[in-house]
Amino acid sequence: MKNTMVTRRQALGLGAAGSAALILAGCGGSSSSDSSSSSSSDSTEKSSYKVAMIMSGTITDGGWDQGHYESLQRALESHDKWEMLEPKENTADADAATAAQSYVDQDVDLIVGNGNQFASDWQEVVADAVENHPNVHFLITNTDPETEMSDYETLDNVETVLPDFTQTGALAGVVAGLMTQTKSIGFIGGMKLPSTISKYSAYLAAAQKVNDGVQGQYNFEAGYTDASLGTQLTEQWINTYDVDVMWGDASAVDNGSRQALEAAGADTHFDIAQPIDIMGPDQPTVITSTVTDWMISQAMDEIESGSFGGGKAITANIDNGGISLGAFSDKVPSDVQDQITSYVEQIKDGSFLTDAEVDAVKSTLG
């Protein structure tokens, strides 16, 4: 049976209409990494490579797509054999396959798709590329190949990237728990996806670990485009629950949340941004950011060595630099920054939160 998947692109169209069902098929359908390695390693070493990026938004959106673009720029800084082609921005689902095919026809070495919507959009393009353009490779982010690509004919030329959502949530939770003065923190998610639930559960569990008694307010159905909804939710939580620290996973909605925090007082109401580092004078409420690097550099290395493919999922975590905290505002006292640094090391080595502590929060979410 073909997977029924909710993608980030589909969620953008839903706004605040509510959560959708996410039906995940079982594992299967992946080609072995052995066949991938033999296929990739047959090609001779090249003196130059090309990379292209396809995104649902823009490189200046201040969040999701800008984060991917910045990850690509960082990767290029350490790969002087690689050249970036002009990204395709604002790519609708209906145009996604055509956009990818245009790069395939140019024998672009690496095509990056910014989000799991491309896993469903590119199935036929990927299959054709294996047969007719064997040097073309695909990297799709935020995608689990076992559940979201099980109906692919082959994954010889595909890899995905999966951030460690628990680590990301724990980083934000430590900051929130140490900075809240009211023991009341909030979280807004664009849609009730497994990644959203994992992030929030670790966020609240970590905050409670460093500050006993912290309570969390959440909304998983805010969509990604309505900034006014972010303002409305945050104002309500400030007035009703005295929330003084927010973390968001809802793109433009997060901008609205920051407006409400600023109106309530930027010296006492704080925001933790993601997925890029936006702390600065233009963001008076942002005290730090949880930053995701999309591991494009590793994909480039694997292509050069002939080891790319087989449907492998690259994990982005603290250990490999895929997950990190951005710069701190001077509103975070130096002793608190020292505490956060210590907790980051514990999160990194897995000694900070247990699965049971995270699951205890998940069990309350329904």
Rank of each mutant, 00 (worst) to 15 (best):
S228R: 11
D301M: 02
S307Y: 09
A260T: 01
M295F: 08
G309E: 06
T292C: 10
S305Y: 08
G309R: 07
G256K: 02
G311W: 07
T288E: 01
G265L: 00
A250E: 07
P281I: 10
G306D: 04
V245I: 07
T292Y: 12
R258W: 13
D244H: 02
I276N: 09
E302R: 14
V245L: 01
V291M: 01
I314C: 03
D282Q: 15
D282R: 15
M279N: 13
G265A: 03
I303Q: 11
I272A: 03
V245R: 03
P275K: 09
D271R: 10
G280H: 05
S257A: 10
A252R: 14
I314Y: 05
T285R: 10
Q232Y: 11
V291Y: 03
R258N: 14
A299W: 07
I276W: 04
Q259D: 14
T268V: 02
A227W: 11
D249L: 15
I296C: 05
P281C: 10
R258F: 12
V245W: 03
L261P: 00
G280F: 03
A266G: 10
E304T: 00
S297M: 08
Y241G: 08
H269C: 00
D301K: 06
D277S: 07
A313E: 06
G280D: 04
G309F: 07
S228F: 04
M295Y: 08
I278M: 08
S289F: 03
T268Y: 12
N239H: 10
D293Q: 05
S305N: 10
A227K: 12
E235S: 13
I314F: 01
I287Q: 00
K312M: 08
M295W: 05
Y241S: 14
N239T: 14
D293R: 05
S305K: 08
G311N: 02
E302N: 12
S307Q: 09
D254K: 15
T268N: 14
L261M: 05
H269Y: 02
P275C: 09
S297D: 15
F308N: 03
I276F: 05
G309C: 01
A263M: 11
A252G: 09
L233K: 09
F270R: 03
G230E: 04
K312P: 00
A266S: 15
A273M: 09
G230R: 07
Q283Y: 10
P275H: 11
Q232V: 12
R258K: 13
D301S: 05
